[in-house]
């Protein structure tokens, strides 16, 4: 396996995706074709990323560590840090024409659209882990706890995990 080619594949899949898991399909196809990774390694990387901190997109760092070791993981950090630089360019474009009604409306629509998409993604996450009475109670409880500002989000997550273990 060529480390530089591997990093190019990580970079390419990141450049053509717009969310943390959006790079998965392209990378999955590329790496399995080359025989550089197995389905098992993808599944492991996704599971680990669920309990680790940071954006969901860091799942690719887990994968890189599993199949290319520490050097691969560190090079991947660089590879996934480059596409976000384009945000600075987009922000400049916005700054120049941002006061125009059409541009304000464009951002307005995109921001609300982003919230809509975010809700769908969360619905899918919820669906994948099972929608039943216990999980509904858990969702409502965590909404109330978050609104109350009494507990840090990480504490709410930890509490939920403990409750699930005790309950089962």
């Amino acid at each position: 396996m060529n480390l530089l080619v591997y990093c190019w594949l990580v970079f390419k899949s990141s450049l053509f995706s717009f969310s943390g898991l959006g790079n998965l399909p392209m990378l999955y196809a590329d790496l399995l074709n080359l025989g550089w990774a197995t389905e098992q390694q993808f599944a492991e990387a996704l599971t680990i990323s669920k309990i680790s901190p940071g954006p969901t997109g860091l799942w690719v760092i887990c994968l890189s560590y599993l199949i290319a070791g520490l050097p691969g993981a560190l090079l991947s950090v660089i590879a996934i840090s480059i596409p976000p630089l384009l945000a600075l360019l987009l922000a400049r474009v916005y700054q120049r024409i941002g006061q125009h009604h059409a541009m304000r409306g464009f951002i307005h629509g995109m921001a609300l659209g982003a919230v809509g998409i975010f809700l769908v993604a969360m619905a899918e996450v919820w669906h994948s882990s099972g929608v039943h009475l216990a999980s509904v109670v858990m969702v409502i409880a965590s909404v109330l706890l978050a609104l109350s500002r009494l507990l840090h989000p990480v504490v709410i997550l930890a509490l939920a995990a403990v409750v699930a273990v005790v309950w089962s």
Partner: peptide, 25 residues
Amino acid sequence: TALHGAIPATVGLSLVLAASMARPF
């Protein structure tokens, strides 16, 4: 099992976040 508890809590936190993102607009 712990993961199964943490996921609905993540969903709940996300709902609060979504509300604060939509509110100003």
